[in-house]
Simulated scan of single mutants.
Amino acid sequence: MPRYFFDIHDGRFQRDEEGTVCADFDAARREAMITLPEISRWAIPCDGDKQAFTVLIRDEAGGVIYTATLTFAGLRLNNAAN
């Protein structure tokens, strides 16, 4: 089975050096879809309301074959102290 590499960009770039063995492209795509919400759950900054999380999937040859981005955007709607 082929190995895919999942590079993460969340304000800084984290290159995947180990990769993950997946059955095919569709399995790698599903892995990216599962990974993005997990990353964002723990990485949204407490002092900001905007953050984008991107996964770049590379194949064994090093070529980027897929990219997916999840965006968090918050907006306070009132001036209440709570």
Results as ranks from 00 to 15, higher is better:
R15D: 01
V64G: 10
T20W: 00
R41F: 15
P37L: 01
E17D: 10
Q51R: 15
F53Q: 09
R3A: 07
V64E: 13
T54L: 07
A27L: 06
E60I: 14
R58S: 13
R3Q: 07
V55D: 14
A23H: 10
R15H: 02
D7Y: 01
T69G: 10
A32P: 12
D47S: 10
D49I: 00
F6P: 01
L70P: 03
R12T: 12
D47K: 01
F25M: 04
R41S: 13
I34S: 08
A27I: 02
A52V: 00
T69C: 10
C22E: 11
Y66M: 15
D47N: 08
A23Y: 03
I44K: 11
G11I: 03
C22D: 07
R76M: 05
D49P: 05
Q14S: 08
E31Y: 01
L70F: 03
G11R: 12
T71H: 11
Q51N: 14
F6T: 02
E31A: 03
M1W: 00
T20D: 01
Y4I: 02
A61K: 07
V64A: 11
D26F: 06
F13N: 01
F72C: 11
I57H: 01
D26G: 09
F6W: 00
C22Y: 04
Y4H: 02
R29C: 13
F72D: 03
T35S: 13
N82P: 00
A43E: 15
T54R: 06
A52P: 09
D47T: 04
Q14V: 11
D16H: 03
K50P: 02
R12H: 12
F72V: 00
V21E: 12
R15L: 04
G11Y: 10
C22N: 07
R58T: 00
K50G: 04
F25D: 02
A28M: 03
T71P: 03
F13Y: 14
N82C: 05
A52Y: 15
L70N: 09
A80I: 00
E60R: 06
I44S: 06
G48A: 11
V55L: 14
S40V: 07
F53G: 06
G74F: 11
L77D: 05
A81T: 03
E18F: 13
E38I: 02
I44M: 06
M33L: 14
G74C: 04
S40P: 01
R76N: 12
D47C: 09
Y66W: 14
G19E: 02
A23M: 05
A73Y: 15
T71E: 11
L56W: 08
I34M: 08
D10R: 13
I39M: 04
G19S: 04
Q51S: 14
Y66R: 11
P37W: 05
A80L: 13
D47H: 04
T69Q: 15
I34C: 09
R41L: 10
D49S: 07
I39G: 05
N82E: 01
I57Q: 03
G62L: 07
N82G: 00
G63Q: 06
N79E: 13
D24L: 02
V21H: 13
G62S: 08
E18T: 09
I8S: 07
V55A: 04
C46N: 10
I8Y: 14
G19Q: 03
R12Y: 09
P37D: 08
T71N: 07
V21I: 11
F6V: 01
V64H: 05
A28Y: 10
I65H: 01
I8F: 13
L77V: 01
